[in-house]
């Protein structure tokens, strides 16, 4: 029990400090890297809860794919931060006030009186061979099948939306609409026009032209 508790506090503290870094740091690259750290710490908490699949997916998908793309975007765009910081000092007092009120209200409720161990008992630990992945899969494909299918629709929709918003159509081109039948049936006379021209140009005219020059 001891080591798990220590690990939990380490991960939780890291997550909180990293989250503060996300909103607090001036440099957007540093903020993005703090978010990576927050994700990794959260993945650690999930691993402690025996949700290995979720923990690993968080690192693979969010850290490995999403955040890397995000960093690319940040580094490619030259973001000017000064206009973003405008009015920061002006809104700071009211912002802090609202944040403190919300914090006070939430801490009135999100505390051991309502979420203590007497109300929510410690979940029983899984055995050594109980696979988190298998359990998740079973739930997804049975109890939550409907939501799972809807999630697929949502992903498809986001693909369509992303393509619609970024695709610039080419100019009207008929190349996409070739008719194979027409191409096979085509005759030489459709494509090649014979034009009668004198094969020999008389020398006299040529010489005259040269004289004129």
């Amino acid at each position: 029990m001891g080591i798990e508790k220590v690990l939990f506090y380490v991960f939780a503290l890291t997550a909180i400090i990293a989250s503060l870094g996300v909103i607090g740091s001036r440099n957007p690259v540093r903020a993005a890297l703090s978010l990576v750290l927050a994700f990794i710490a959260t993945a650690g908490v999930w691993l402690l809860l025996q949700a290995e699949f979720l923990g690993i997916v968080l690192i693979l998908v969010y850290v490995g794919a999403v955040m890397v793309l995000f960093l690319f975007v940040i580094m490619m765009l030259d973001i000017n931060l000064t206009p973003l910081k405008e009015g920061f000092a002006r809104y700071l007092p009211i912002g802090i006030m609202v944040a403190l009120i919300v914090l006070a209200e939430m801490s009135l409720i999100l505390n051991p009186n309502f979420f203590g161990l007497e109300i929510y008992t410690v979940p029983t630990a899984l055995g050594a061979h109980d696979s988190n992945t298998k359990m998740l899969g079973q739930l997804l494909f049975t109890e939550y099948l409907y939501a799972f299918v809807l999630a697929a629709v949502l992903l498809l929709l986001s693909i369509v939306a992303a393509i619609v918003l970024t695709l610039r159509r080419r100019q009207q081109s008929e190349a996409l609409y070739q008719n194979v039948g027409d191409q096979v049936r085509v005759q030489a006379s459709d494509r090649l026009t014979m034009v009668k021209m004198p094969a020999v140009v008389r020398v006299k005219e040529v010489v005259q032209g040269a004289d004129d020059e």
Binding site: L154, L157, A161
Partner: peptide
């Protein structure tokens, strides 16, 4: 349902 509806609207 809410997300499917809203995401289409944004796009």
């Amino acid at each position: 349902g809410l997300e499917i509806m809203s995401l289409s609207l944004y796009a």
